[in-house]
Design a protein around this nucleic acid. Structure first.
Length: 416
DNA sequence: TCTGGGGTCCTAGGACCC
DNA sequence: TCTGGGGTCCTAGGACCC
């Protein structure tokens, strides 16, 4: 059977492109987007990359250079980006059958059989860019890993790159092993230590030796790079395996009430997400941490609460989260972060009826109504489990753009 | 003074069993 | 004084990704 090429569609400088969508005056100007709490750089326009500002660098370290080059700054606005992302992939789904969304700004898809690859991806790129207005790149190879390599090359040219059997050996020789998808700092150092510096070096190494030294991860990388796909494009999106909500505080705190409040905030957001997914969970984990950069960096911990029956009930989850805080809290520690996560997510339809729940109240109608109101408001109008009147612990987002697409009051006005 | 948030997968090691 | 070997399952932690 002939191998069907795999493509990767990647939105260019995605968060920056989203901001520019509603601020076309910023096209061609240096723009960057900051993480929550305006902590560090998470997206850069090409102009910002050219200045030499690197990914993930703390904001306070680059304030001078930002001023010097008149860089435009935005606080990360995930709701906006998610909405734009949804539109991008809607168009992609219109173009192809087999699509696997990989992240908020990337998706793999299978090139349909008997298609001219170049023509096909050119059309896809044009359709997305015309319909949504976000510039995208597309790379094509025989595996996801090859497609990622092609995608990187695409960004350096006109946004399209197709690897062929003829071009691949030269490309492989020019690609450092550290640039490969799945090769991070640790693996890269280990590869280099064994004399494997480029993709060709890895392809030339005996497979059994790679297996011994690098385990299944190494063998899979080698196969994928040689054009044998080990990870097919998944047509159906399965239920995700875990879900978490975490946030650093604007400033650290020793207040237990703040921890309660933050834990409840995360728990009810997870509960709402679960209901949206039609899913339930059997356990919830809460973790609290002090600052990573200080005397208390090792303080904190994780606590799990198990439910007798899988649930997505906001009251149950917030109560569990607060009881976990009770167990974890130590007076006198300046806490910086609270996170709540759930694993083993199951479809709600698969939740068994229990023999043990004696008088379980069914809050479903109430919670459904609450979800609908909050969704329509575009913010948390109704909350459960809050103890504090203010959200003083919440992160700073001083330079956040309006919710152009998800909040009625923020819709852009057009004058003609 | 100020360093993100949300995921997946793999591995090693312990508990437990026969 | 002697004290197996092999298997499974679970968990915590690490590496990696966007």
């Amino acid at each position: 059977m002939k191998k069907q090429p795999i493509a990767l569609l990647d939105c260019n400088n995605f968060f920056v492109s989203c901001e520019r969508l509603f601020r076309p005056d910023l096209l061609g100007k240096p723009v960057l987007v900051l993480s929550s709490n305006d902590g560090c750089v998470v997206a850069r326009s090409q102009e910002v990359k050219d200045i030499g500002i690197t990914m993930g660098v703390p904001y306070f370290q680059i304030k001078d250079i930002i001023k010097q080059h008149d860089v435009q700054i935005f606080s990360g606005h995930l709701a906006l980006y998610r909405d734009v992302s949804r539109r991008v992939f809607e168009v992609l789904h219109d173009c192809v059958d087999v699509v696997e969304q990989y992240s908020v700004d990337e998706a793999f898809f299978v090139i349909p059989p008997d298609t001219d690859v170049e023509v096909f991806i050119t059309t896809v790129k044009q359709r997305v860019e015309q319909a949504v207005g976000i510039p995208v790149s597309i790379g094509v190879g025989l595996s996801k890993t090859q497609a990622k390599c092609a995608g990187a090359l695409a960004k350096k040219t006109n946004g399209l790159h197709v690897l062929t059997e003829q071009s691949w050996p030269d490309v492989a020789a020019s690609l450092p092993i550290s640039s490969v998808w799945g090769v991070g700092r640790g693996l890269s150092a280990k590869f280099t230590g064994h004399g494997i510096k480029s993709v060709s070096d890895l392809l030339a190494a005996p497979t059994y030796q790679i297996g011994v030294l690098f385990g299944v991860v190494g063998k899979r990388l080698q196969a994928e790079l040689s054009g044998t796909s080990c990870d097919p494009v998944a047509q159906k999106r399965m239920l995700q395996k875990s879900l978490m909500s975490t946030r650093s505080f604007a400033t650290s705190t020793e207040s237990k009430d703040v921890l309660y409040d933050a834990a409840a905030y995360h728990a009810r957001h997870i509960a709402a997400d679960l209901r949206l997914m039609g899913a339930a969970v059997a356990a919830l984990q809460v973790s609290i941490r002090a600052s990573r950069h200080g005397d208390f960096c090792l303080r904190g911990g994780t606590r799990e609460v198990v439910f007798t029956v899988p649930t997505n009930d906001t009251f149950t989850l917030t109560n569990a989260a607060e009881s976990a805080i009770d167990a974890l809290y130590e007076a006198g520690v300046p806490y910086q972060k609270v996170g709540v996560s759930v694993v083993e997510i199951t479809a709600q339809s698969a939740v068994p009826h229990t023999l043990f729940a004696t008088e379980m109240t069914d809050n479903t109608p109430l919670l459904k109504a609450m979800d609908a109101i909050n969704l329509a408001a575009g913010s948390e109008l109704i909350t459960i489990g809050s103890r504090l009147k203010t959200k003083s612990w919440q992160a700073r987002s001083d330079r956040r753009s309006p919710a152009y697409t998800t909040r009625w009051s923020d819709i852009a006005t057009v004058s003609a």
